[in-house]
Amino acid sequence: MTAMTTSISEVLETMCFMSLNLPADKTCDDFFKEASGKVFGCEIGFSGKVNGKMQIFMPDRLIRTVTENFMGQDPDSIEESLLEGTLKEVINMAAGNTFSIYDSNEVFNLSIPEMIEGSAPVKTGGEELSLYIETMDGNMAAIMTYEA
C-alpha cells in the first residue's frame, strides 16, 4: 500500500504539480458513489514476483487538469484522445514506480495500458488494495488487485 501511495503521489506531484490527500475515512466505493459526469478509467497489468493489475479512475474535470499540467496545454483545447493518452502515461509511470519502490532488484513486466469500458472497476480475484485520493481539482480512485 505504501509503495502504491508513494508512487502515485510522486507521479502527480512531479509531473503534474498536484498535491494529494488520502482521507482515512473514505474508500474507493465512496469515489464511485460521489462521481458525477464522465469518469475515465484505465488499467495496466503486471507480472513478476506478484501478478495482477492496477486501475486508476478520474472524472473528466480532473483528467483535463492533469493533462493541462502534464502537457502544458489549455484544457479546453485538449482532445479526448490526449486525455486518454495522459491517463495511460500516468498509470504506466505509477505502476513502474510502485514496483521500483517495492523491490528494485526484481524485474516486473508491465502490459500496455488500456482504457476501461464503462469506467467502473473490473473486479478480479486475489488481494485488493484501493485508495480514495483527494486533489484540489477533484478526487480519484486507484485499485490494485494481485496474487503472489
Binding site: N92, G96, S104, V107, L110
Partner: peptide
C-alpha cells in the same frame, strides 16, 4: 527515459 526500475534492466 523509462518506467523500468529494476537494476537488471
Amino acid at each position: 527515459v523509462t518506467t523500468e526500475g529494476s537494476q537488471e534492466k
